[in-house]
């Protein structure tokens, strides 16, 4: 009897000690491995132009989700219509994460230029989120192209004029008819409809 119990005691101790050596899961299932991430970074397909964004806003594309990654005070001063504010420094919090990975939505990061937006994109891509984009040139480019488009010279091709007319019309749409010098368009700070991820529910139980 005693020898058996001794054996069982040691076995149980080994099992308990074994739990220490269970490795922490390195890669959460959906994370993007570093190698793949580097490949993604070199692709230009993550960029969307300010023209594309303007078009989506004007057409009220329901899949568009604009994410302003600048600090909150800048967001409050001026931002794109219906943009959500996820400051870059807070991007890893669960609340911020709720804005990513929503089914069928295309998230477009933007900042003043595109440096912060790019960083947000890389971080999010590493976590495995798909359907994420960066607005090339950021808000500075937005001002230059949409709000204050430059009239192309007479020798420019037809398409340049088309783009210019589109931009002028878009500019009027966004500013209500006044061309603006500074970034302070006083644009309607539209009520932001925030769609968040459905929270997965844990089991309930009791005594």
């Amino acid at each position: 009897m005693n020898k058996n119990y001794l054996f069982l005691t040691i076995l149980m101790l080994l099992l308990a000690v074994g739990t220490f050596f269970i490795p922490k899961k390195q890669l959460v299932k959906h994370e993007r491995s570093p190698e793949k991430l580097l490949m993604d970074i070199t692709q230009p397909s993550r960029y969307v132009t300010t023209d594309q964004v303007a078009k989506m806003i004007i057409e009220q594309d329901p899949t568009l989700e604009l994410i302003d990654v600048r600090p909150a005070d800048e967001y409050n001063k001026f931002t794109l219509p219906d943009a959500v504010n996820v400051p870059l420094k807070d991007i890893l919090t669960p609340e911020s994460q709720d804005n990513l990975g929503i089914e069928d939505m295309n998230a477009v990061f933007f900042s003043n230029d595109d440096i912060m937006a790019d960083q947000a994109w890389v971080i999010s891509r590493r976590m495995g989120y798909k359907n994420i984009y960066v607005m090339k040139g950021g808000l500075n480019c937005w001002i230059e192209t949409i709000i204050n488009p430059v009239e192309p010279p007479e020798t420019a091709p037809e398409t340049a004029f088309e783009t210019y007319h589109f931009r002028k019309a878009a500019g009027i749409y966004f500013t209500g008819g006044n061309t603006v010098q500074t970034g302070d368009t006083g644009t309607k700070k539209a009520k932001v409809k925030v769609r968040r991820k459905k929270k997965e529910k844990a089991a309930s139980g009791g005594c």
Binding site: A202, A203, S204, G205, G206, C207
Partner: peptide, 13 residues
């Protein structure tokens, strides 16, 4: 299977 454990007093309640 169920995500919860077993019990007994709950049934009396």
């Amino acid at each position: 299977i169920t995500g919860r454990g077993l019990g007994a007093s709950g049934a009396v309640k």
